[in-house]
């Protein structure tokens, strides 16, 4: 067939995923007065000193950069909630905990731009990193089985935006290959096959058979 669709065409760049995350609402406490903003993406404000207000993350960061507000940490980012999430994440091998769809990007943006507003910033940061690692590992191991590959639809419950974006090229093409070959024997069955780690990032050429 002449036309193969370019696998890169449909993939979002990390910046684009971050762009989407910047529209998520956060709470800020302004330290200045400002009239209502009638933006294309919605109306925000008016802002009064010490009066909490809901704004999109990009707006919060813009104000924060100019020292006009403090950003309130979202509830799910408190040390207590994150510790619970991490524990639950470690306890269950199959399922993923419910986190905001853009948790990776939101936390990253807050660490980059609003460090001072996060109590226990080091603990929070390491908790988020641990959660991310546990989840990524789980994503990798769950790819080994491809349980539902035979039905040509695979459920990935509670996966976050960044995680989906990372596994998309690999999983998408793998499923497509299974689908094309079409015979159920080709779908790896964890009971019959020795576990093998799929390498999502393996773009390197295969080892040559003979050394030169």
């Amino acid at each position: 067939m002449a036309g193969q669709s370019d696998p890169n065409l449909s993939i979002f760049s990390a910046e684009e995923v971050e762009f989407m995350a910047e529209d998520e609402l956060v709470e800020i406490v302004p330290n200045m007065r400002m009239d209502k903003l009638t933006l294309i993406c919605g109306d925000y404000g008016p802002f009064f000193p010490q009066m909490p207000a809901q704004v999109p993350l990009w707006l919060a960061i813009a104000l924060k950069k100019r020292g006009k507000c403090t950003i309130r940490l979202p509830d799910w980012m408190s040390v207590e909630n994150l510790s619970q999430t991490l524990e639950a994440e470690r306890d269950s091998q199959e399922s993923f905990q419910v986190l905001p769809f853009h948790y990776v990007e939101i936390s990253r943006l807050l660490f980059d731009h609003a460090r001072g507003d996060i109590p226990d910033v080091y603990t929070v940061r390491s908790l988020i990193e641990d959660i991310r690692d546990v989840r990524f590992h789980k994503v990798e191991t769950s790819l080994e089985s491809f349980e539902d590959a035979r039905s040509s639809a695979v459920k990935v419950k509670n996966l976050s935006a960044m995680e989906v974006n990372l596994v998309r090229p690999f999983v998408g093409r793998a499923l497509q290959a299974f689908y094309k070959h079409g015979s159920p024997e080709l779908v790896p069955n964890p009971e019959r096959m020795p576990p093998r780690r799929p390498q999502a990032t393996d773009n390197v050429q295969r080892r040559p058979l003979r050394k030169r």
Partner: peptide
């Protein structure tokens, strides 16, 4: 028309 590029509708999407 085997020189006409067509979109691959078999692509897996999220």
């Amino acid at each position: 028309n085997d020189m006409v590029a067509k979109p691959q509708l078999d692509t897996f999407v999220v």
